[in-house]
Simulated assay, not measured.
Amino acid sequence: MRSVPAWALVSSGCAPVFLIMGWLVAASVQGPPYDPAAQTISVLAAPGTEGSWVMTVAFIALGFCHLLTAWGLRPAATAGRTALAAGGVAALAVAVFPAPSSGGSLRHGSVAAVGFAVLAAWPVLAARGGAAVPWALRPFPSLGATAVMAAGAAWFLIELHLHGVAGVAERAVTTMQSVWPFVVVLSCLRASPRDDCPT
């Protein structure tokens, strides 16, 4: 019997779908005033903007997906599961503390920064050693995933500071962060019965 429940594949697979569909639909509702290359995803959920509820719902759905996946991903090290769950809580907090339509917000910025950090760190924190460990939970792929996410987060901060293509950078890193849990769950479920994920 596999140690990762099948519903974890659904929760992890829905995370990127909710996120990407959320920003696509919200941006289409806002129309030309919104520049997806330069403006962040959070701007789509700013109070008073058209379709802000769409992105808010997407953040909430993403948060619950991460929480459920962390709960079901028993083969991962506890520190990694905790970090993934913290990323889910951060997504919920982003919905509670939305970015303003103009200017900055310390609360929103702090919550978003924590979310980026824990979601970048969770793969390496979830890694385990041993021949029976699924490939996506092995140290080298986990370290690679964390390195790519950290580099993406750094790129986003640079673009934000330079008033460049922050929207492109943010979408790249958040897509990676939302897809990786699905990859990990899939690698566990694809493990052969004799190489079941350790509990």
Rank of each mutant, 00 (worst) to 15 (best):
R128C: 04
W53M: 14
L119P: 05
A113S: 14
A15Y: 00
A147Q: 05
L162S: 14
G51W: 15
S142H: 02
C65M: 00
L160Q: 08
G104N: 08
S28A: 15
A95M: 03
R190A: 10
F18G: 01
P193I: 09
Q39L: 05
M21I: 10
A93E: 10
T175L: 14
G144I: 08
M176H: 03
L160F: 07
P5M: 14
A70L: 05
R2D: 12
C197K: 02
A46N: 09
A90Y: 09
P139H: 00
L84N: 02
L186C: 01
C197P: 10
V168A: 11
G115R: 03
L68Y: 03
G167K: 08
G22N: 07
S102G: 08
A85G: 06
V118M: 13
Y34P: 09
L24F: 12
L162E: 15
A117N: 04
A145L: 06
P134N: 03
S101E: 15
V111I: 15
S105A: 03
V184Q: 06
A136S: 07
F18M: 02
V173T: 13
G72M: 02
Q177H: 06
R107A: 15
A132V: 01
V133D: 03
V173H: 06
L62W: 03
A38T: 14
V118D: 07
P193V: 09
S12R: 01
G13I: 00
M149G: 08
A77T: 00
T174Q: 11
H66E: 09
F97R: 06
A169V: 08
V168Y: 04
T78L: 13
V183A: 03
W7N: 12
V17M: 01
P139E: 03
V114T: 13
L189E: 01
S187D: 00
G48P: 12
L73E: 02
L9C: 00
V43H: 09
Q177M: 15
V133E: 04
R81L: 11
A145P: 02
S192H: 12
G80P: 04
V111M: 13
A38D: 09
V184W: 08
F59W: 14
M21N: 13
G144C: 14
L9N: 00
V94Q: 12
A131I: 02
A8P: 02
V168W: 09
T174R: 12
L106V: 13
A147E: 10
Q39G: 00
S28Y: 13
V111F: 14
G87E: 11
V96K: 09
S192G: 13
V10M: 01
T49M: 15
P123L: 09
Y34W: 13
A76R: 07
F182P: 01
A120I: 06
C14D: 00
S187H: 01
G152I: 07
G72F: 01
P33E: 15
H163F: 11
A151P: 02
A127L: 01
P123H: 12
T69H: 04
L9D: 03
P98H: 13
A38L: 12
S192N: 09
A79L: 09
V183G: 00
W155S: 10
L24T: 07
M1N: 12
S52G: 14
A126D: 08
I158P: 01
H108L: 02
V29E: 14
A6D: 11
H163M: 11
H161I: 02
V54N: 11
P134T: 03
A61I: 00
S110A: 15
P141T: 08
I60H: 06
M21C: 15
A85N: 03
W155E: 05
L9F: 06
S3C: 07
S3Y: 11
A46R: 10
G115L: 05
